[in-house]
Design a protein around this nucleic acid. Structure first.
Lengths: 226, 226
DNA sequence: ACATTAATTAACTATCTAGTACGTAAAACG
DNA sequence: CGTTTTACGTACTAGATAGTTAATTAATGT
């Protein structure tokens, strides 16, 4: 977040007169704000601090977003929308049920592994009882596509006899998300208590396989008392 | 949190002169602070607000704890210690491996279900990169007992042939914790996206069984490609 | 009884922080 | 061109907030 892409320098050359670029300014505010909110939480993030990390002034934040809270909501909406975009690229339709659900679990793992800021924003939003996500219409029904996908995989799996468990799509999605989310979100307290950083590279592949195996094992119905 | 137990009224009767009770004052500060930190996060919690919710003044917070940060650390330590006390009461030694790990998973589920404030404090601490939990010696090696227990169950399970998976105790503990923690910690964003409150009573029993079955299924090795 | 210490209160302050008033310059438009 | 609109900067303010000063009262020991 501190380094800028080489094609667009962070600071304007001093000799050239100040350039105006509404899109770019807005985008930069959002990017810096995302990093700051993720790093310090909503109350802990400082509007002045966000301004200082940019080539713009604080006034611009209020010019474009009106208030700290509306800036935060804009950050949330952007982060969630980017996530949806990624999830749509998943193509597991042509796979057999077992491999389809395993692949989906591993893709979720990869996604959470790659989007640390997003995870922190979600955690922060939950601390505030989801009061902002609830008011945003942009974010409603954002979960529907994944549920459709899982439902179809579960049906196919039961039809083929691979899946025995009478599982619900939302439950299965929670099971997968919980594993992937927790590993990243709770890395610090878990690391402090058990002396192992679950996000360290040496644990990555093993845990990635673990989500898939866990999900498949559950759906095959091996957890019953029999 | 607003109502007080009937045996100990929140406010002193006006006729009797003010009573002094260091223990009680300290304990009340901690209790109110826990609720406030859990509700608003570290930066969002207000020292003045904590004081107003008590029969004491703000000065007492500084008298007993010195600073907002040290108060927060004290809250964390108290919350973690209470958790350890509960975990020690678990008696699964006499059970067969499959039932032992299933029972442990369900107890973890119950525990997370019952200690919402604790979960929020853990989430908050992770947002701050665990900087406070790292400095507290009270909290180091707090995880060891559970790991011992899980290790013994896993060994017994492999010896009896019930468990096939070459699982690591820390990994298994993370798998169980992730499910139980996520369900409570992410209830708001998950509820907003998928239209289901996973902490609602009608989902409780089903999800409780699900952790157990998931864990057992995984350890039985049903997730393999074969 | 009386001095000492521990607990408590009220009022205060320095600083931080979200938000704003006001002015200016670059584009867009005619 | 000249006028309007959009984007931006400087300097400020009102209120909040963590932390303090100093006096006061209840318990404790002798």
């Amino acid at each position: 977040m501190t380094s800028q892409p080489a094609t667009q320098p962070a600071t304007q050359p001093a000799d050239r007169p100040r350039r105006r670029d509404a899109e770019r300014t807005r985008a930069e505010i959002l990017a810096v704000a995302q990093s700051e909110f993720a790093r310090h939480g909503y109350a802990g993030a400082r509007v002045d601090e966000i301004a200082e990390l940019m080539r713009t002034t604080k006034r611009m934040i209020y010019y474009y977003f009106g208030s700290k809270e509306r800036l935060y909501v804009a950050v949330l909406e952007k982060a969630y929308s980017e996530v949806r975009a990624v999830e749509r690229t998943v193509d597991v339709e042509h796979l057999a049920p077992v491999e389809a659900i395993r692949t989906l679990a591993e893709l979720t793992f990869d996604h959470h592994d790659a989007h640390r800021d997003f995870i922190k924003l979600v955690a922060i939003e939950n601390i505030h009882q989801g009061e902002h996500i609830r008011t945003s219409e942009v974010l409603a029904n954002l979960g529907a596509p994944v549920l459709d996908l899982i439902s179809r995989i579960l049906e196919a799996g039961r039809a083929s006899g691979d899946f025995v468990t009478e599982a619900d799509a939302i439950d299965v999605h929670m099971m997968i998300s919980a594993f992937c989310f927790f590993r990243v979100a709770n890395q610090h307290t878990f690391g402090a208590l058990f002396g192992r950083d679950m996000t360290a590279p040496e644990h990555r592949e093993r845990l990635r396989r673990m989500v898939g195996e866990m999900t498949v094992a559950y759906l095959r119905g091996a957890g019953g008392s029999a």
